[in-house]
């Protein structure tokens, strides 16, 4: 509650265009923003650019933000949309890779617990752009297939397919990873 009050105070200063408080807001949510953008863009530099563009959008439109709502979900929307815009701009939605040859039945969970951000990004790199995007949107950020369909301009069925393939690919990659790390 106290944290929310502090955040609201920060936001109210940002609404006045106070650069100092904008910097504070930036630094407070830098990790959060970068974490979301890097999942979609899989590249630190691109992610930072998308995150910064999102912050600029926030600073410009924060006047319309209603403090009664949570800031994070509002900001998350902006981050995801901006990341997708960056992705569209770079036209990196490529064809899916086929990684579904053999699917391991079970993976040692202790391996997953130890996955670092770099490990996960390394695994994600093996997915194609659409698989990774659908996986992120559906599994991590909680969008429905209908919404994903609208956001990526693909049929809902394709969204489901990409998700399935992404999961299969990740299972296989994790299996390989666990074998490698064991």
């Amino acid at each position: 509650m106290r944290e929310k009050q502090g955040l609201n105070e920060l936001i109210s200063y940002c609404k006045q265009g106070n650069l100092r408080y904008q910097e504070l807001l930036y630094k407070q949510f830098y990790g959060y923003a970068l974490g979301i953008c890097i999942r979609y863009l899989n590249n630190r530099d691109d992610a930072l650019e998308a995150a910064n563009d999102s912050f600029i959008k926030v600073f410009k439109s924060i006047g319309s933000f209603n403090e009664e709502h949570d800031f994070k979900p509002w900001f998350r929307k902006i981050l995801i949309n901006t990341s997708l815009d960056h992705k569209r701009r770079s036209m990196r939605f490529s064809e899916a890779l086929e990684l579904t040859d053999t699917i391991p039945q079970s993976i040692h969970t202790s391996v997953i617990d130890k996955l670092s951000a770099q490990d996960i990004l390394g695994l994600m790199k093996h997915l194609n752009e659409l698989q990774r995007t659908v996986f992120n949107l559906y599994e991590i950020d909680g969008y429905s297939h209908k919404e994903i369909s609208g956001m990526l301009n693909i049929p809902e069925s394709s969204s489901r397919t990409y998700l399935t393939r992404a999961k299969q690919a990740l299972q296989q990659l994790l299996a390989n990873h666990s074998i490698y790390t064991r």
């Binding site: 959060y32 999942r39 670092s116 951000a117 996960i120």
Partner: peptide, 12 residues
């Protein structure tokens, strides 16, 4: 895996 991704990237 999903839980781990959320944890790892929640504050990257």
């Amino acid at each position: 895996l999903i839980a781990q991704i959320k944890v790892v990237f929640n504050d990257y």
